[in-house]
């Protein structure tokens, strides 16, 4: 009986903690994004109506609450805190395993001019000399950024590292490592560090528009794998569908008219 009472007591305590532990654990940038996205969802949910609309509004309401109070119950449940002071530097690490030898992968990567073939955000890379190269990348909202990079070290077939030279718009550095496995091909690990133009908020906004760096690196690596293993990157853009049926009909009408 005593034990049961104890258990009840601890349950009550947990619930009280849940309700009263309202310390800020959501960073200010993230609060802003959370509030904006939440408000958007509420509006969309209400306009859509129905069960799904209601559910979306509820989720949106939660995000607004999180933005307004700076407290996220989920974060406190998993002990996460994005309000703690953090650097504006973005750090990304991603890996992929490719069924090719270290040497094949290393050689392809080592010619930096190959990189835009699978790094979609890169417009071009021009090798200037043994050490230096000029990089041009797409930036959010149709703009672009350029910088010069310098190779800082390489171990043949194993790793390549580089950083941008002094005074770059986006100071950045990176390492790619090629590690053999017993019989699974080669593990390729990319580590990127860079300072986005508008700090962490910039990276959050980029995430909303689908250009978040860690997602971007993951997709780049997947394309690298596909290119090396199959010789191509599978695409469906440009295929036919019923969505362009009307266009086709229009065209055939024009043809008939001109004939």
């Amino acid at each position: 009986m005593q034990e049961i009472n104890k258990k009840q007591e601890s349950n009550t305590k947990e619930i009280t903690n849940f309700l009263t532990d309202m310390k800020q654990n959501v960073g200010d940038d993230e609060r802003l994004v959370s509030a904006i996205a939440g408000a958007g969802l509420v509006t969309y949910g209400i306009s859509k109506g129905g069960l799904l609309g209601t559910a979306l509004s509820l989720v949106g309401g939660g995000l607004v609450y999180r933005g307004a109070t700076g407290h996220c119950h989920l974060y406190s449940a998993v002990d996460k805190n994005t309000a703690a002071p953090s650097q504006t530097r973005v750090h990304v690490q991603k890996s992929v395993t490719i069924d090719k030898s270290q040497a094949e992968l290393y050689q392809f990567w080592r010619n930096f001019e190959n990189l835009p073939q699978f790094m979609n955000h890169l417009e071009s890379v021009t090798v200037l000399d043994d050490k230096r190269s000029h990089w041009k990348a797409k930036a959010p909202l149709g703009t672009s950024v350029e910088w010069e990079a310098e190779a800082t070290g390489e171990v043949e077939n194993e790793r390549i590292s580089w950083h941008s030279v002094e005074g770059s718009e986006i100071p950045n550095s990176g390492v790619v490592e090629f590690r053999p496995t017993t019989n699974r091909g080669t593990e390729v690990r990319v580590t990127l560090t860079y300072e986005p133009p508008a700090g962490k908020l910039g990276s959050w906004i980029a995430w909303l528009f689908g250009e978040e760096p860690s997602q971007q690196v993951a997709e780049d690596l997947r394309r690298f794998k596909s290119l090396m293993e199959t010789g191509l990157i599978m695409k469906v853009e440009g295929q036919t569908s019923g969505r362009i049926a009307e266009v086709a009909e229009e065209k055939s009408k024009v043809k008939t008219a001109s004939a």
Binding site: I233, V236, E237, G238, Q239, T240, I244, A245, A248
Partner: peptide, 10 residues
């Protein structure tokens, strides 16, 4: 539906 014929993409 009447749709455009498919084409080689890869």
């Amino acid at each position: 539906e009447n749709v455009p014929d498919p084409s080689i993409l890869n």
